[in-house]
């Protein structure tokens, strides 16, 4: 039985970790690459969709509904559904991951822009801003905290999901987890290290984005109004 065989090895073999630094780095890099591509493309698409939704309000509900359906479809099913179109490869993995960012990002971008106080918009109009410049200079910066909050959720979600792409031969750290599982007998260190590194990566990216948000919104920290 596998149970008996698995007991032969400890949960974490540090010497294996020490010997495989290069592999771990390579997988982490791959993991980050998938995450960056998916969130980057997702952000570009979401910005475009948000501009449409903000300009034509009636489209907001359908857009969010579409995002919601994409978000609900299991990742496993999504890989499978996209497979005939995209074939096995990075494009399949990244496309599937992108679909999970749309709902989160569109929702937060729209909420962020909607949250810009009415009087600020009116003041900007009253001083002669044109719509495009007003969007870039006033609305987008003020929406930044909410947009970055969405980016953080999307990034952390995607980092977790990248592991699932192991099934189609990608997966970054997920590949390590899968290898550890498929080795006979199972190799616990790979499973534990793969999972832990994925968590560490998620937390690191989350904190980095939080730092970016802080750096981008200096006005939000100083609040000493009498």
């Amino acid at each position: 039985m596998t149970g008996v065989l698995a007991q032969a090895r400890p949960l974490l073999e540090w010497d294996w970790v020490g010997r495989n630094g290069e592999l771990l780095w390579e997988l982490t890099r791959q993991h980050l690459y998938f995450t960056g591509m998916a969130v980057g493309i997702g952000l570009a698409i979401s910005l475009a969709l948000s501009v449409v939704a903000l300009r034509w309000r009636a489209t907001l509900t359908p857009i969010l509904g579409f995002g919601s359906v994409l978000y609900t479809i299991p990742s496993l099913a999504l890989f499978a559904l996209l497979l005939p179109v995209l074939g096995i490869g990075d494009a399949l993995a990244i496309t599937a991951l992108v679909t999970y960012t749309i709902l989160i990002l569109v929702r937060n971008i729209v909420a962020g822009i909607d949250g810009v106080p009415r009087e600020v918009i009116e003041a900007a109009d009253g001083m002669g801003y044109r719509p495009a410049r007003r969007f870039l200079e006033i609305e987008l910066p003020l929406a930044m905290p909410v947009v970055v909050a969405g980016l953080r959720i999307a990034s952390v979600t995607v980092i977790g999901l990248v592991t699932v792409t192991a099934l189609i031969g990608r997966g970054g750290l997920g590949a390590l987890i899968l290898r550890g599982f498929r080795t006979l007998p199972p190799f616990p260190t790979m499973i534990v290290v793969g999972t832990l590194l994925s968590v560490v990566l998620a937390i690191t990216v989350d904190l980095l984005l939080l730092g970016v948000e802080r750096a981008l919104t200096p006005w939000a920290r100083r609040k000493t109004a009498p």
Binding site: A6, I159, G160, V164, P188, T195, S198
Partner: peptide, 24 residues
């Protein structure tokens, strides 16, 4: 909720399976 989001579901499922095979 943030911590929960950071845990990869695939890794967690494999880990729980691993622990089950070891403890019995």
């Amino acid at each position: 909720v943030n911590i929960g989001r950071a845990i990869p579901s695939f890794g967690l499922i494999v880990l729980f399976w691993l622990l089950a095979t070891r403890t019995g």
